[in-house]
Design a protein around this nucleic acid. Structure first.
Lengths: 242, 242
DNA sequence: CTATTGTGCTTTGTATACATTTTGTATACA
DNA sequence: TGTATACAAAATGTATACAAAGCACAATAG
């Protein structure tokens, strides 16, 4: 291994990853958040066409902030915009679900590998506070918040890798994957199964068993994917294949 | 393994990954390309401040297309924009180089793993055509084109995974990493060392040795990182650490 | 002398008017 | 009847004018 990289590795032990500050809400930011939420919760269903003017009146602003929001969401994989022809909400295909989970596996595995090398005891303590998530059955708002906290846990876990770039990519990916959980599934089952997984993961990390933790995470992500796929099939929810 | 995923896997064997069509050049697209090129080649040096108006006059257009280009480049990690305060070209720190290479390792490893399962003989033939890259020593234009083709090779290799999402992320990442090669290094050495690596990789893939191929790729990426880090140190190029 | 507040300048944020492109439709012609 | 062309409608792409926000610096009160 290159001696420079050893130096680099040592330096990284001490660096702090920047915590994203809450940015002040500009109109473009608000439209971005609202539109993203509405797409994720399927208020705008996959495949429907959206025009800038339409969204502008819907969210009470002009076309410019809408435009910016649409471009961002386009890059995150929730929208597709064709020049001079407007936007359409991306379809959720079986292929896309598989692609996203494959990518997620790669990213989170790598992040956890790095996190095991770099995380401190204090980091793990702070993380364990996020691990336990309350959830009341069949309450929609509660479920939305549960998903938010679940996302946050995975982001914070990845942040222990101290790799800002990786975390940024993962944040976008997990954000757009939230949509999968709103496909008309029986949501209760998911939450109850996912609850204990976080604690298991933190425990393995705390006991300094990186390989076990990575295996555990892989099993969890894989089973999450399979839960979704199985539920889709069993509930006979029609999705495009490719 | 979930039975549904087995079905999914079989289906994926036959799917074709969409080839990105060359989009017609709108002004925003042109500014994006020009600005990206100028940042990568360090015409705009790391750390300098840029204003929308300044860029608009520089590239001969109005602020709107410039704005869009800046937002895209911001999301790709080349620029940082602070609200009401303009943009600045991101610094290249040792930490960022390390972060990017770590992420790249994770992404390309995963892609190659999938590619080994899914690629056909025809795919590998087509790829091997891209593997050999001509390069004339100490010719700047030639070196730029060499880097472009090197990028293309890695993108096409990753495309064999049939995972569009992964490819999109990798494309952005590798694009912003191009900048590392323009830090005033002796470029000739890099090119000559990198040339044979592609062929070795394709050969291992063709001989159906996925594990060897992944190991080979990992060594190549790691040594590429170390070449850059070592050259930076030896040439005494001052970079921020964190 | 220090801290705070106000003022002005710079730059982005937003709205709106206009240009350009795409696509569908109607019509003329073979 | 089929095809090609011209035109109209709808949407984004671009430019510009104005509003809002941040920051530096000076003036002022303590």
């Amino acid at each position: 291994m290159c001696f420079v990289y050893i130096l680099y590795t040592i330096l990284m032990m001490g660096t702090k990853t920047e915590n994203r500050v809450a940015e002040k809400s500009t109109a473009a930011e608000q439209v971005y958040n609202a539109l993203k939420r509405d797409i994720i919760t399927l208020q705008h269903q996959p495949g429907v066409s959206l025009t800038e003017q339409q969204l502008a009146t819907l969210y009470g602003t002009s076309r410019v902030p809408v435009r910016e929001a649409c471009r961002r969401l386009g890059q995150e994989g929730l929208l597709t915009g064709r020049p001079y022809r407007g936007y359409s909400v991306n379809h959720i295909s079986l292929k896309e679900i598989g692609d996203c989970f494959d990518l997620r596996l790669g990213l989170e595995s790598r992040a956890l590998e790095l996190a095991a090398q770099r995380a401190t005891a204090g980091d793990l303590n702070r993380l364990s506070n996020l691990a336990t998530i309350e959830y009341t059955y069949h309450d929609w708002d509660s479920y939305v918040e549960f998903l938010d906290r679940n996302l946050d846990f995975h982001i914070q876990l990845a942040s222990l890798s101290r790799n800002d770039r990786l975390v940024a990519v993962l944040r976008d990916l997990l954000g757009s994957m939230q949509r999968f959980f709103f496909l008309g599934l029986d949501l209760g089952d998911f939450a109850s199964e996912m609850r204990s997984e976080h604690e298991e993961l933190v425990a393995l990390l705390s006991s300094d068993s990186p390989d076990l933790a990575i295996g555990c995470l892989n099993r969890q992500i894989t089973s999450s994917r399979d839960r979704i796929l199985r539920a889709l099939i069993e509930d006979r929810i029609d999705l495009p294949i490719g």
